[in-house]
């Protein structure tokens, strides 16, 4: 089953919620990033978020910056993103979203990007530096191709902006847990609980919390109130330090947090 919304709904019926795992394409190599993504799914990750390395990643902390810079230095090209999606979806059933800063999509051509992502078997895009206000081209291209659009909501977003984000999103809304950039934190902000409550009040059916989550206990805590928990930097660090096996082992550990309490 490849539909992000359906996977998240199903996981909320059969367990506490969905686990979403992030890894950058091309780190440490293209092959290893594909193997690692597959290992995440085999160890309990429900939805994959593959990041496209970008020269100026303003939403990312040091762990992801270092990994994506290495991928770029190793010759990452946008075409590798589509190749990774194709190879991962050939091997596992989980839906695969690409997470990308906006300029690479603009330069590739928004329509061409959408067509190639759909053809590769991708589920949609998470766009950290594209707000719905600026997204007319992408909304049109994703309507045409049926791709999902995941926009971000922040604790400082007004109610009106939350409604706009919910209306523009398809798949889920990415609730930024805390004010800040990616990177593991010892306690996930209480702001996340409030934000998800506000999103639900404004009509969101699936809110997934990301930024700062690194342990099974945090996954469990987040899934008390949200439909999904997103883990990025912690998985990237495991991959950097211990390779594909370590990333898989951390995914298995994190997946324990999805059990109903």
């Amino acid at each position: 089953m490849r539909n992000v919304g359906e996977v998240i709904a199903r996981r909320n019926e059969e367990s506490a919620g969905a686990l979403i795992g992030y890894l950058p394409v091309g780190f440490p190599t293209l092959d290893a990033s594909v193997d690692a993504a597959v290992a995440l799914v085999e160890n309990g990750v429900d939805v994959l978020e593959l990041g496209l390395p970008y020269s100026d990643p303003v939403m990312d902390g040091t762990v992801i910056q270092a990994a994506t810079q290495e991928a770029l230095a190793n010759g990452f090209r946008l075409a590798h993103g589509f190749e990774a999606v194709r190879r991962v979806t050939e091997r596992v059933d989980a839906p695969v979203l690409l997470m990308t800063y906006w300029n690479p999509v603009v330069q590739y051509g928004v329509d061409r990007f959408a067509d190639d992502l759909a053809a590769a078997g991708g589920a949609g895009l998470i766009t950290p530096d594209l707000i719905p206000d600026e997204a007319a081209d992408w909304i049109a291209a994703s309507e045409r191709t049926g791709l999902d659009r995941v926009f971000l909501a922040a604790p400082t977003s007004t109610d009106a902006r939350l409604r706009q984000t919910i209306d523009a999103s398809r798949g889920f809304v990415y609730a930024v847990s805390t004010m800040g950039i990616t990177g593991a934190r010892t306690d996930v902000d209480r702001a996340a609980r409030t934000l998800v409550g506000r999103l639900r009040g404004a009509g969101a059916t699936a809110s997934c919390v990301g930024v700062g989550i690194s342990t099974a206990a945090q996954v469990a805590e987040v899934l008390e109130y949200a439909e999904g928990a997103i883990v990025g930097s912690a998985l990237v660090k495991a991959l950097a330090d211990g390779g594909v096996d370590a990333a898989g082992a951390l995914a298995a550990e994190l997946a324990r947090g999805t059990a109903r309490q």
Partner: peptide, 9 residues
Amino acid sequence: RFVPESLVA
């Protein structure tokens, strides 16, 4: 304004 939502406010 091509920025993260966190900066919009």
